[in-house]
Simulated scan of single mutants.
Amino acid sequence: MAHPPQSVVRNRLLKAFPPEDFARIAPHLESTDLPMQEPLIRSGVAVEHLYFPEDGICSITASGSDGRVEVGMIGREGVVGVVPVLTGGGQVPHDHFVQVPGLAHRIGTGPLCAAIEESDPLRRLLLRYLQVEVVQVRQTAFANASFTIEARLARWLLMCHDRLDGDDVLIKHEFLGMMLGVQRSGVTLALQNLEGAGRIRSRRGCITVLDRTLLEALAEGSYGVPEAEYARLIEGV
């Protein structure tokens, strides 16, 4: 089956590929489902495929004695698995799994590495994307250390909202607590506060964004830095 042309793919990073580089990798792209909780990259395991999400969200998590915490998020703005490919590390110490189901374009590491070797513009584009990922991780650490649970929740919901169609974020409260690294009771209280202020509507398994502007005001400086970096480095070139 022929791969869809670059003009109709929804992944923003693929859209930013130089046309000749997209044509180079297109025969190696295959459409694949991203089921809920599907592991895409496992900690300490060699990366064999990379994923360009069309929709859905992938979480990058770090694990410890108290469970796991989200340290990164990838949706249709990016690609899952690029760090060990670009650095030559082969594997990473963090799990990457599907947080919100969707679809993706999958490619083997071999064909993508070959394309990178053949194209300096493609290498530079993916290195710029790598910088965005690094900025996001650092901003997450800053947010977790400096902001209230409500502000961190607002930031997380805004990041999800950026990557999804519509205003509904399908997620269980206990899973959200794990992603934010807080107790479920803290998440429940934060959700109640955001709902009481008219920012969201919270139901079992679903959070609906009602007022994005109010969420941005609550998130303050915890949100927006990686997003601006993406616009500058990827969409501004």
Rank of each mutant, 00 (worst) to 15 (best):
A2P: 02
P4M: 05
P4E: 01
P5W: 01
P5H: 01
S7E: 06
V8H: 00
V8D: 00
R10W: 05
N11D: 03
N11A: 10
R12A: 15
L13C: 11
A16D: 06
F17P: 00
P18K: 12
F22E: 02
I25F: 09
A26D: 06
P27R: 02
P27C: 13
P27D: 06
E30R: 15
E30T: 14
T32Q: 10
D33I: 14
P35Y: 05
P35L: 07
M36C: 04
M36W: 13
P39C: 11
P39W: 00
L40N: 01
I41Q: 04
R42W: 01
A46H: 06
A46K: 09
E48P: 07
H49F: 11
H49E: 13
L50W: 09
F52K: 00
P53D: 06
G56H: 08
G56F: 14
I57R: 01
I57A: 12
S65Y: 05
D66P: 00
D66Y: 12
E70W: 04
M73G: 01
G75N: 02
R76T: 08
E77L: 14
E77K: 10
E77C: 09
E77P: 07
V82T: 02
V83C: 04
L86V: 09
T87H: 08
G88L: 06
G88K: 09
Q91N: 08
Q91W: 12
P93D: 06
H94P: 10
H94R: 11
D95P: 15
H96L: 15
H96W: 14
V100C: 01
P101E: 12
G102C: 14
A104Y: 10
H105P: 10
T109L: 11
T109F: 12
G110S: 02
P111W: 04
L112G: 03
L112S: 02
L112Y: 02
L112P: 06
A115D: 05
E117T: 09
R123T: 13
R124K: 14
L127Q: 05
R128T: 03
R128V: 04
L130Q: 00
E133S: 13
E133M: 14
E133T: 06
E133A: 15
V134A: 09
V134G: 03
V134W: 02
V135L: 07
Q136H: 07
Q139K: 05
T140P: 00
A143E: 05
N144K: 13
F147K: 08
I149N: 02
R152A: 11
A154D: 01
A154V: 11
A154W: 00
R155P: 10
R155L: 12
R163N: 10
L164F: 03
L170A: 13
K172A: 15
G177W: 11
M178P: 07
G181V: 06
Q183N: 08
S185R: 14
V187A: 06
T188N: 09
L191S: 00
L191Y: 01
N193R: 11
E195R: 08
G196K: 04
R199V: 15
I200W: 04
S202V: 13
S202G: 02
C206V: 15
C206M: 13
D211F: 07
A217D: 11
A217S: 12
L218S: 10
L218I: 13
L218R: 09
E220W: 12
S222N: 08
S222Q: 08
V225S: 08
V225T: 10
V225K: 11
P226D: 09
P226K: 09
A228T: 01
E229S: 12
Y230Q: 06
I234L: 15
E235S: 15
V237Y: 05
